[in-house]
Amino acid sequence: MKSKKKINNRDITLFLFVIPAVALYCMFFIYPIINGLYYSMTDWNGITKKFHFIGLGNYLSIVQDARFRGSFLFTLVYALMLLALVLVISMVLALLLNSKIKYKSAFRAIYFFPAVISMLTAGLIFNEFFYRVLPGIGELFNIEVLKTSILSNPSLAKYGILFVHVWQSVAIPTVLLMAGLQSIPQELIESASLDGANKWQLFKHITLPFVLPVVTVVVVLMFKDGLMLFDYVVGLTQGGPAGATESVALLIYNHGFKEMKFSYGIAESIILCILVCTISFIQIAVNNKKKVY
């Protein structure tokens, strides 16, 4: 009986400690989501106290909105390019920094430096680079495509944003992949090498299966980062030229805070949230089947 009483007292104590966290979670996460779902079905402009319930009207308008479709297509293509580049570059860096090379500590410090700069700051710095430095180089070497800022070119502006984004985003994935590489049993690599396996075979059949859980994390994080693109666009192009780099996140901001279509922007954000969650779940489910334990 005494043992049972002690367990009950412990459970009550733990429950009391959990209550503040659950209350804060409901207050700042669950309630805003429910409230947002409700307001997305109204015509509220974000200011007035009077608004009307319109059901799925905003969602139906979004489906037919050419501006949203263009923004979504740009964001999706951008996210895929970001994912591919960051994954390849971070994997190469992780393999190099995990090997026996000179000045490894110095290289680790150098490649991680961009990660400590805020995204908006990086965007503003490279904005000056693209508008002042790069055109000067183009004039000096008579390179026609560089004589004007690539950020003012609707076809090239996204590549300028992508360059900055990749430059700053490879640090954390590289750290994660390095941790995954260091968890691989060296006995397997040595055994395979003695059996005549080359470097590609070692990477394909040993390295990649063991780091796949880390790759899954990197894929989900980078794809989500690309779909939520906002700071770099604000710092570099403001969505221009001619709306060519207006991401979905920036479109939501413009609708909500500049065009006073607050409920419309909330509906767009809910669609984006559902998309990110769905893609993340699919990626995790597919990659979990290929894990090596």
Rank of each mutant, 00 (worst) to 15 (best):
K2W: 10
K6N: 14
R10A: 13
L14K: 03
F15L: 13
F15K: 12
L16S: 10
F17R: 11
V18T: 14
Y25E: 10
F28Q: 09
I30S: 05
I34C: 14
N35V: 05
G36H: 10
L37T: 11
L37C: 14
Y38H: 08
Y38W: 11
Y39Q: 11
W44E: 11
G46C: 07
G46L: 03
T48F: 01
T48Y: 08
K49I: 10
H52K: 11
G55N: 13
L56T: 14
G57A: 15
G57D: 15
L60Y: 09
L60V: 04
S61N: 15
V63S: 07
S71H: 05
S71V: 11
F74L: 14
A84C: 10
V86C: 06
V86D: 10
V88Y: 09
V92R: 12
L96N: 08
L97P: 12
K100H: 14
I101W: 07
Y103V: 13
S105E: 13
S105D: 10
A106D: 08
I110K: 01
Y111V: 12
F112N: 04
I117S: 11
L120A: 05
T121S: 14
T121L: 06
A122G: 07
A122H: 02
N127M: 08
F129P: 01
V133Y: 07
G136A: 12
E139C: 11
N142W: 04
N142V: 09
K147P: 09
T148R: 07
L151K: 08
A157T: 03
A157P: 11
K158E: 04
G160S: 01
I161M: 14
V170F: 15
T174C: 12
T174S: 13
V175Q: 04
L177T: 03
A179M: 09
G180R: 13
S183M: 12
Q186S: 15
I189L: 09
E190A: 09
S193R: 08
N198P: 13
L202P: 01
L202F: 05
L208C: 02
P209Y: 01
L212W: 00
V214P: 11
V215D: 00
V217H: 03
V217Y: 07
V217M: 07
V220T: 00
L221G: 11
L229D: 00
L229W: 00
F230C: 06
A244F: 04
T245R: 06
E246W: 01
E246T: 14
S247E: 04
V248T: 15
Y253Q: 10
M260Y: 12
M260A: 05
G265K: 07
L272F: 05
L272H: 08
V276S: 03
C277H: 04
C277S: 10
T278E: 00
F281N: 01
Q283H: 03
